[in-house]
């Protein structure tokens, strides 16, 4: 393998602003450290897997990105929103730029596919004709046009997750956060969902997907960030991306060095 030493959380290309950046981020609950000194920069259109055993802090890191939680130290910046300067009422504006997918889908059981996907647009006050056009378009993209009037309980797990993905896409987010999106799905359906996420990524949306299953994701050649016990222990593939500077820029804070890949 490549013997080049890697710096965890390499600084971004100066010409491109990262869509998500975590700068020396720590999160403590009382004395318990949930995340420790995380440096992570994700560029627009990037696809990043975040792997690690359960309890490593993947979901917590996700929550920092959609600002359900705020770091006790350091700073999180997402699509121009800065955690240290964030006002409560602005969180809803951030959420409209970030698509979210969860292991348990989080669909509204009493509404059909169309209504579920349209939900974020109702909430943000788009006009009716725009809603209809966009929702049907997104539902087609995830391949559920024929089932647009089905209720979630009439759908399989994979289909439900596709509804959730459609809902996450309907606001044309800059970044899609997927927290164990395939955790409840069988391997075949998992592949389908991954393919769909890749397709979305190719269309230009940055995707961060958390999973505990390293085997599942290692063969795709995408960037893989390893989390263990709240620390970022390895960042595979970050420096190999084309157009990246190979030099390690001097940083006042100690860059964490790891062994070879």
């Amino acid at each position: 393998m490549n013997e080049t030493p890697q710096q965890i959380g390499a600084l971004p290309d100066p010409d491109r602003h990262p869509i998500v950046s975590l700068y020396h981020v720590s999160l403590k609950y009382g004395s318990r450290v949930a995340l420790h000194d995380i440096n992570l920069f994700i560029e627009p259109g990037e696809f990043v897997f975040m792997v690690g055993p359960s309890g490593a802090g993947k979901s917590t890191l996700m929550r920092l990105v959609y600002m359900e939680e705020f770091p006790t130290e350091g700073q999180v910046t997402v699509a121009g929103f800065v955690s240290t300067r964030m006002k409560r009422h602005r969180i809803s504006h951030l959420r409209r730029k970030v698509g979210l997918i969860f292991q348990d889908f989080k669909l509204l059981e009493d509404r059909d596919v169309y209504e579920n996907v349209a939900f974020p647009l109702y909430v943000t006050g788009a006009n009716q004709s725009y809603i209809k056009k966009t929702v049907l378009d997104v539902i087609s993209r995830v391949g559920l046009y024929a089932k647009r009037y089905s209720k979630p309980r009439e759908l399989s797990g994979g289909e439900q997750q596709r509804v959730a993905i459609a809902r996450a896409l309907v606001n044309s987010p800059h970044v899609l956060l997927a927290d164990e999106p395939t955790g409840n799905l069988d391997p075949e359906v998992t592949q389908e969902i991954l393919k769909l996420l890749f397709k979305i990524n190719i269309a230009g949306t940055a995707v961060i997907m958390a999973t505990h299953d390293h085997e599942l994701v290692r063969r795709f050649g995408h960037r893989i960030v390893h989390l263990e016990q709240g620390e970022c222990v390895r960042d595979e593939g970050a420096l190999r991306r084309p157009g990246r500077q190979q030099s390690v820029e001097p940083e006042p804070a100690p860059g964490r060095e790891t062994g070879t890949d």
Binding site: H89, S92, H93, L94, R95, K106, F119, P120, V123, N171
Partner: peptide, 16 residues
């Protein structure tokens, strides 16, 4: 509760 949680996640303002 679930509806409220989802509304929060998809960017509804608290007033909404």
């Amino acid at each position: 509760q679930r509806t409220i949680e989802i509304m929060r996640l998809v960017g509804a303002t608290n007033w909404f």
